Simulated scan of single mutants.
Amino acid sequence: MSALFLPLAIGPWQIALIVIIVLLLFGGKKIPELMRGLGSGLKEFKDASKEEDTTDKKLDENK
């Protein structure tokens, strides 16, 4: 494995540690709200990128 991808190698222990830290920081009641916000943000990003692609195609057709 190259040195570039070495820091990106996440195993099960690292994932468990991240989950525990997130639970400690935000608590169990805030997690669903945070995930809901993250999901809606991703949906808006996808919609905006699709809209940009259709706008680019229309501009290319008019040339």
Rank of each mutant, 00 (worst) to 15 (best):
W13N: 05
K63Y: 08
L8N: 04
L8E: 00
E61C: 00
A3D: 09
T55E: 08
G11T: 01
E44F: 12
E33T: 08
K43A: 14
G11K: 05
I15G: 01
M35I: 15
D60L: 07
G39D: 00
K43Y: 10
D53I: 05
D56Y: 05
L8V: 01
E33K: 04
I31P: 02
G39Y: 07
D53A: 15
S49W: 09
A3C: 00
M35C: 11
P7M: 00
P32N: 01
Q14F: 03
L6P: 01
A48C: 01
L23K: 05
I20Y: 10
L8S: 06
K58L: 10
W13A: 11
K30D: 07
A9W: 10
I20C: 11
A48L: 08
E52W: 09
D53Y: 06
K29L: 11
M35L: 15
A9C: 04
N62Q: 15
Q14E: 05
P32T: 02
I10S: 15
I10C: 12
K58T: 04
I15Y: 08
E44G: 12
S49F: 11
P12A: 09
G39N: 10
P32K: 01
Q14G: 10
D56T: 03
M35P: 01
F26K: 02
L23Y: 04
L42F: 13
I21D: 06
K58V: 03
L8T: 03
R36F: 12
K46C: 04
V22R: 08
F45P: 01
I31N: 01
G39C: 05
S2K: 15
L6E: 15
F5Y: 13
M35W: 12
D60G: 04
A3N: 10
L17D: 15
E44W: 13
L25H: 09
K50M: 04
F26Q: 03
A9R: 14
V22Q: 06
P12S: 11
A3I: 09
S40E: 14
P7R: 00
F45M: 09
A48I: 03
E52Q: 13
R36K: 12
D56R: 15
R36N: 14
P7W: 06
A48D: 13
K50Q: 08
K63C: 03
K29A: 12
S40L: 15
L42G: 05
R36Q: 13
F5D: 04
K30V: 09
K29M: 11
G41E: 04
G28I: 06
G37C: 02
K43E: 09
K30I: 05
L34R: 02
A3Q: 14
A9H: 10
K46V: 13
D47R: 06
F5S: 08
T54S: 13
G27R: 01
G28L: 08
D56I: 01
T54Q: 14
G27L: 02
T54G: 00
P32L: 02
G37P: 00
F45S: 05
K43M: 12
L24Y: 08
L4D: 13
V19L: 13
D53T: 07
K58R: 15
L24E: 05
L42I: 06
I20F: 15
F5N: 06
I20N: 08
G41C: 03
